[in-house]
Simulated scan of single mutants.
Amino acid sequence: MPATDNGNAVRGRSLWDDARDRLLANKAAVASMILLAAVAIACFLGPLVLPHPYDAVYRDFVKVPASLEAYPREDQIAPALESLLRRGRVTVDTVEVSGERVTARISSSRDIDPRLVRYLDRSDLFRNGEVADLAADGKSATVTAEVRRLHFFFGTDSNGRDLMTRTLIAGRVSLTIGLLATLVAISIGVIYGSVSGYLGGRVDLLMMRVVDVLYSLPFIFFVILLVVFFGRNFILMFIAVGAVEWLDMARIVRGQTLSLKRQEFVQAAEALGVDNAGVLKRHIIPNTLGPVVIYMTLLVPKVILLESFLSFLGLGVQEPLTSWGVLISEGSRNVQGAAWMLIFPSIFLTSTLFALNFIGDGLRDALDPKDR
């Protein structure tokens, strides 16, 4: 470590420090990191604070549009109450709405059964229904209930489930599958490619022919086989995607290893008696991290798109769990009358993909400034 004239040590700058400064100077990459962090926090923490479970069904609010106002609307309360009370075979004379309470005067040609308020409590619009002021002859009474106010900021789907909660839960699934599948692909690809490139010769030839054979097989073939053997579940997704996407990583790392193993520091390690595993662990793999990190940021959006495509085909995650691909698939079938079912999941998916791609471009420029 160099020292100044007064004897104080000055800390030198590493290449990683320079790369970090170049990355932070890239406004698009920094904005993308902030956006990606916001999306991730919203997806993982948002469902914990939202009032609606992702699998809760509101039968009275099927395909309601996105709105900042609470449901039901004022003009919907009286007709809904009358419809529910008619199931109890009574006549609704008057309905008054006062704030969060609604009062109805009812009459009937026969005795009124107080249990008719169960129709109100079973609905999604009212709660705490009571029968009061029952007449002596049992032919008239007053029914009171509380209006249940619900917010659906992204609207609801075709089953009456809150789309905002489901979009955030879908983000959890898509981001988790993207990260896990990428880690699987990176782990397999780095180890396979570095071993193949470092050992060389017939071993390299055989290992690369295996990669070529796997390249020739269609991706969907692997997925169908995994579905047959393991069934449709969450774990299957990142195993299926990661088990195929490592092929590109293996070729990239192999090319880097072929150039690194001719470097002086690798030859010096071999001359000192370091075994092959030690050379790979200490010298080859650490020096391939730059391209690996860049490829990883570009692989995550690719994996998310693949998962969305598989979910669109019905081979992905299953209900009631969901992903952005599942929501987009459902939204595309209802785009004519319920466009919000397609718009909100698409916004989250596209913004995440753009952010990851901009981060990948920023890392590429930061780690390889000569390529700018």
Rank of each mutant, 00 (worst) to 15 (best):
D75T: 12
G155A: 07
D5G: 10
K139N: 10
V326K: 10
V117S: 10
E74M: 08
T350Q: 07
Y198M: 05
W324K: 11
I304G: 04
V241S: 08
D371Y: 09
C43W: 09
V293S: 15
M207G: 06
E69L: 12
I112S: 05
Y119G: 09
A28R: 13
P51F: 01
V143M: 03
T350L: 15
R333Q: 15
S332K: 10
G337K: 11
G46Q: 04
D17V: 10
G316S: 06
T288Y: 00
Y119H: 12
D371R: 13
L48S: 11
V131P: 10
W246I: 07
I169A: 06
T182R: 00
V173N: 06
E319A: 15
F229N: 00
A66F: 02
I220D: 02
F234W: 10
L289T: 14
V227E: 04
P2M: 11
L36M: 12
G242R: 02
N287F: 06
L310R: 08
E69A: 13
V147F: 05
E264K: 12
L289I: 14
S196D: 04
I284S: 05
L168K: 08
E330Y: 02
G88P: 12
G331P: 01
F126H: 01
L180P: 05
S32E: 08
L305G: 13
P65Y: 04
E130W: 01
I169V: 15
V147D: 02
A170D: 01
P51S: 07
A9V: 13
R22H: 09
V10Q: 05
R86I: 00
R115S: 13
